[in-house]
Design a protein around this nucleic acid. Structure first.
Lengths: 188, 188
DNA sequence: GTCTATACAAAGATAGAC
DNA sequence: GTCTATCTTTGTATAGAC
């Protein structure tokens, strides 16, 4: 993959960056072409159906890999271990995933039905895996594990998309997650 | 306040609707003028500094009234009562607040420093009030109440902005909140 | 594949008449 | 206050040369 082997890929990368930071409508085809270092005409050669097609490609290329943090927790042996593990996995890709998710949810209403379904499915799979993992480490009823998994997902999302970007938690380290781990420890 | 007493207000209302559903860049001044039933020139008379100024006005007019759900919980006497109360208050203004919050967070990065600070402050006040309320009903250490308050805020946000709009929770009623109430009941 | 050149619509914004 | 008319810039998109 030399410097400019694949123009198409360069375009997708530049578009990803711009769409994510500025949003779809705020980003012009000119801007993308400039960022790549080519002309608009060249861009239209690679994406014959124009801006919207390029956007769809970018969406699929940027579906956050939800499973990544879960794989790290494979050998957790308690609920609190799962949580602290999720939190640390989360912290490492923080700015990346945070931006991707924010963008994804912001554009979600404008997406086509297939893309919306794709995203929904990703979350459902994540939830299913997490619930299974919870059942494995502490003997919960299936429905309780399901709820607990959604609870954790909501919590992480709220933290990642609300507290963290708005800089609402001042006490430096993510003590909140540590405390959650302690909470659920009691419950388990 | 007759039909067209206040053009300025009409403009703000129309702009609110359009900005929220389409976003800032996707909404044109023309579109707003059309919705109001006047010309662009008239609009520029009321907002001399143009689209961005109108937008700022709209942002301030649409800062969700965060305190509303809290006021409903004044006479809650336990942690679980607070939570179920918040949840029901939340459910009533659901679609409204959901859209407002989604929009606010999507546009947040583009806002000026003062507006960002304003939003941040609203959340901090909400948190402070909720934490105080928690301390009032169950004898928690101040720091534990603080964390618990953030936890509940994150959870509600995750539910409102992730699970609910993506239609990820299938079991009809908001059992998740009921279960959370039970969880925290044990903790208290 | 990439460029130059250009078409054409829509954007934000303003001057000046009423 | 509101309109008509107009300006300038920016947007998406394409034709045709290299």
């Amino acid at each position: 993959m030399s410097e400019r082997t694949n123009r198409r890929q360069q375009i997708i990368n530049a578009a990803s960056e711009l769409f994510m930071t500025q949003g779809y409508t705020a980003t012009s085809v000119r801007q993308i072409a400039d960022a790549v270092g080519c002309t608009e005409a060249a861009l239209y050669y690679h994406f014959k159906e124009g801006k919207r097609t390029l956007f769809n490609t970018v969406v699929e290329a940027n579906l956050p890999n939800f499973m990544l943090p879960l794989q790290r927790c494979r050998d957790a042996r308690s609920l609190s271990e799962i949580i602290t593990c999720l939190e640390s996995a989360n912290r490492e890709h923080r700015s990346d995933n945070q931006q991707r998710m924010r963008w994804l949810l912001a554009e979600f209403p404008t997406l086509g039905a297939e893309e919306q379904a794709l995203i929904r499915e990703k979350f459902q799979i994540f939830h299913r895996e997490l619930a299974a993992m919870i059942r494995a480490v502490c003997d919960q009823a299936a429905s309780a594990a399901d709820d607990l998994a959604w609870l954790i997902i909501c919590l992480m999302h709220g933290y990642q998309q609300l507290l963290s970007p708005l800089d609402l938690v001042s006490d430096g380290e993510e003590t909140m997650f540590v405390r959650l781990a302690r909470f659920v420890e009691i419950l388990a």
